[in-house]
């Protein structure tokens, strides 16, 4: 029996190098969450389209993705089979958590999907549009309570940006953090707070049913199928996208990067992936290579600035 075990160990060790062409995707979140779903959808698409034989997903939840991200940077260096899913939330989380590992340390591949932030009010609210909100905010910022996700997350950052653009001190924003969009939604529906701010998907069903009124969306231009003016139209110069991306390991060669880019490009254009996007209601905001890297840099700069102003980052 013992001999069998040892034989197995040796055989296993020898079998190791044979697996290089497969992918291992890290989802820096618990099973079921957005990044986990993205990773698992990629797994499905990559396998169904025969781009890769075997794709594994590893969940490393915690601290807005920074735990998984740090682990990825430390352990995958130079390994072209390893990918990580991430998103805009990580930009903020890395700053607020003082994470020693930054997004510069991975190799960005592509932005896959994205969601815009929206501001909603209960149907009976006296706030009709963005200018109404700005007016109230200017008169008494404390009297406008904002319900959204955790402090320092995309929702909080957007609220801070809006206040700043409206000429109101971002530290005076009365932002009430709820766990996840769900609890925030309940607080808005129950008339506990003035406005709600979160991704469109959180509120879509309520907006359609008419129980919530959407007063603005964070896109540059109006989005098809969403009957709402942009923040910019409302006189508030803010645009933000809560995107999800895929990145590769640090320290890979340019050829390896190009190969991964080609695989992801193939996946993103594939029928399986497009079908998943429709099913999940995710917007296709595919942006690859250098264009994405630039966007990432701009986002990081703007986020750092606003988090400092809100007082969440020293």
């Amino acid at each position: 029996m013992k001999q069998f075990v040892w034989a197995s160990i040796i055989a296993g060790a020898m079998a190791l190098p044979a697996m290089a062409e497969d992918y291992k995707i890290m989802a820096p979140a618990a099973p079921g969450g957005g990044w986990d779903q993205t990773a698992r959808s990629m797994q499905t698409a990559l396998q169904d389209e025969k781009i890769s034989n075997s794709v594994q997903v590893l969940n490393v939840p915690g601290a807005g993705g920074t735990i998984g991200h740090a682990q990825f940077v430390n352990q995958s260096s130079g390994d072209p089979s390893q990918l990580i899913v991430g998103g805009y939330v990580m930009v903020g989380a890395i700053l607020t958590n003082n994470s020693p590992v930054t997004l510069d340390q991975v190799t960005p591949i592509a932005r896959l999907t994205g969601e815009y932030e929206v501001i909603v009010v209960p149907a009976a609210s006296d706030i009709k549009d963005m200018s109404g909100l700005v007016e109230k905010l200017k008169a008494d910022p404390g009297s406008v309570s904002w319900a959204g996700g955790s402090a320092g997350g995309t929702d909080h950052i957007t609220a801070g940006l809006i206040a700043k653009a409206a000429g109101v001190d971002p530290t005076k924003v009365n932002y009430i953090a709820f766990s996840g969009g769900g609890e925030a939604l309940a607080a808005i529906l129950g008339n506990q707070v003035t406005v709600g701010i979160s991704g469109y998907g959180e509120f879509a069903a309520q907006i359609e049913a008419g129980t919530l009124r959407i007063i603005g969306i964070s896109s540059d231009e109006r989005v098809e199928g969403i009957d709402a003016p942009t923040f910019k139209e409302g006189g508030v110069d803010v645009s933000i996208q809560n995107w999800r991306m895929v990145a590769a390991a640090p320290g890979i060669t340019d050829e390896q990067k190009a190969a991964i880019l080609a695989d992801i490009e193939k996946m993103a254009k594939s029928e399986s992936w497009q079908k998943i996007l429709t099913e999940k209601g995710w917007a296709d905001t595919y942006l690859a290579g250098d264009a994405f890297a630039e966007q990432l840099k701009a986002d990081t700069e703007a986020t750092t600035a606003i988090l400092k102003e809100i007082g969440l980052v020293k």
Partner: peptide, 28 residues
């Protein structure tokens, strides 16, 4: 009725509903 997952189990179920084309919410 609201599309509100209140527990970890419910959050996973919400993902499950999507495959049935069930879009939880007030109009469901």
């Amino acid at each position: 009725t609201l599309g509100l997952p209140t527990t970890a189990t419910a959050a996973i179920m919400l993902a499950g509903f999507q495959q049935f084309g069930l879009q939880p919410g007030p109009l469901l």
